[in-house]
């Protein structure tokens, strides 16, 4: 009898453990299934096109824009910057090879105990070679990121949360908590608009689904009139719900990027992109 009770207790503990601490892979599969069921018309691989994957009328307009992509100048500027040697004679290629490295980011650095994004790595490359870091968000750094993303088109999103490093899982969990928490005076969570609300209209704008959200950065956004990085957009979203935004490359936004990118594992990087 006692043995049975003990066995039951172990079973119960294991069951509640897995319910409470579903791993990143369980999260991802549920996330993917949610969106593929919500938008059965959209093939899974097409979610990297954001709103245009679920809204045929705006897709038409977007395809026209893509014929003369507004991000092309940025790729060119990024290429020039890439080819121009640093003062010490070295260059970005000494850090990133041919630049087609988008698929390696973001990653958890177990030695440093932090998340390394591609934009962070670009600045670290500069600083290691005696150059000033660039401003995150827009401008030159977005150009270099655009060039590298362009060189990396078609690479698979493949974020790894090392299982043997509890700090990595904790960072992932913080990103997840951020994504699902309401904040700001208007009291919205990311998931409110881009989960259950995705596909709905806010005035004339249709809300995009979260799956594939991270694939196409940096983005030329017509509303900005220039290029911006993923973290610039995070900041804009936060301010829209009337929360104070965090700085690009802050721990909060890097954790958010880690979580959100993990959710799109298996899809392809297709940056840079163009959006309304």
């Amino acid at each position: 009898m006692k043995k049975h009770v003990a066995a039951l207790m172990v079973l119960f503990a294991a069951a509640s453990w897995s319910m409470l601490f579903a791993g990143p892979e369980d999260d991802r599969m549920a996330f993917e299934k949610y969106f593929t069921s919500k938008f059965p018309e959209t093939p899974k691989h097409d979610f990297i096109n954001g709103i245009y994957s679920i809204d045929p009328p705006s897709r038409e307009q977007w395809l026209e824009i893509e014929e003369f992509p507004p991000y092309e100048l940025s790729i060119d500027a990024g290429r020039s910057a890439w080819e121009k040697p640093f003062a010490n004679g070295k260059g970005y290629a000494d850090c990133f090879g041919d630049g087609a490295v988008r698929g390696q980011y973001p990653y958890w650095d177990s030695g440093r105990k932090e998340i390394i994004t591609m934009e962070l790595a670009i600045n670290e490359c500069r600083e290691a070679n005696g150059e000033e870091p660039l401003k995150y968000g827009k401008g030159k750094l977005a150009d270099i990121s655009a060039y590298m993303s362009f060189m990396s088109r078609g690479q698979k999103i493949n974020v790894i949360i090392p299982e043997d490093d509890p700090d990595a899982l904790a960072a992932y969990e913080r990103g997840k908590q951020f994504y699902y928490s309401k904040r700001g005076q208007l009291n919205f969570a990311c998931i409110d608009c881009h989960g259950s609300g995705s596909g709905n209209l806010v005035r004339a704008d249709r809300l995009s689904p979260a799956l594939g959200h991270v694939s196409h950065w940096p983005v030329y956004r017509s509303k900005w009139g220039n290029m911006g990085t993923l973290h610039r957009r995070f900041g804009g979203c936060n301010r829209q719900v009337r929360a104070a935004s965090f700085k690009p490359q802050s721990p909060q936004y890097r954790e958010l990027e880690l979580f959100l990118t993990y959710m799109s594992n298996g899809l392809e990087y297709n940056g840079p992109g163009a959006r309304k």
Partner: peptide, 16 residues
């Protein structure tokens, strides 16, 4: 309200 609700004679209402 119009950003999420159809209302009165408001144009381009949302549907949240």
């Amino acid at each position: 309200c119009l950003s999420c609700h159809m209302m009165d004679n408001g144009s381009l209402p949302g549907n949240q």
